[in-house]
Amino acid sequence: MKSDSVLKNLVKKNWWISLIVLLALLIIFIPLPQSQNDAADRHFQVEASMFQFIPGRIQVNQGDRITLELISTDVVHGLSIDGYDFELIADPGQSQTATFIANKTGVFRFRCSIACGNMHPFMIGKLQVGPNWVLVRGIILGVLAVFAAFLSFRQSSHIQKSTVS
């Protein structure tokens, strides 16, 4: 009898946790309709110098055929994109070009892949393919976190009150 009520109490106490976890999973994993836009050919000239890429941000749509031309303006630089099997290495005076298809959505950092001095590890740019849904999901998750904080606080103060009485 007693254990039954404890269990009930436990469920009562923790229902909100399950709710929050469920919502969180939903926010993280719910599939979004893929936006249908015609894949285009896009050409970008990226200039690399110590220690920056210009432009530092590139935005394309999913499925676009991206042709990147890497132009090094001082020393040998490289450009590799996180999550994509893509790398360019260019000497000054010998710009390099390659093409890839932006089939993964999200924001990917591209980094200099050839050591080019002290700040080389931080020579970073960003490639955004399609809308940054991860950021949107992250923001919604943040709102849920605040909501969860209110709930958890209310629950714990309820329990305190009930145990006091």
Binding site: I28, G78, S80, D82, G83, G106, R109, R111, S113, V134, R137, G138, L141, G142, L144, A145, V146, A148, A149, F150, S152, F153
Partner: peptide
């Protein structure tokens, strides 16, 4: 190697920030 940030590490970062926000709000 030239390191890469992966979707896994990105989600860890998001969850950590959310935990921070939850915790701070609490």
């Amino acid at each position: 190697q030239v390191g890469q940030s992966t979707p896994f590490s990105i989600w860890i970062q998001i969850l950590l920030l959310c935990v921070g926000l939850f915790w701070a709000s609490r």
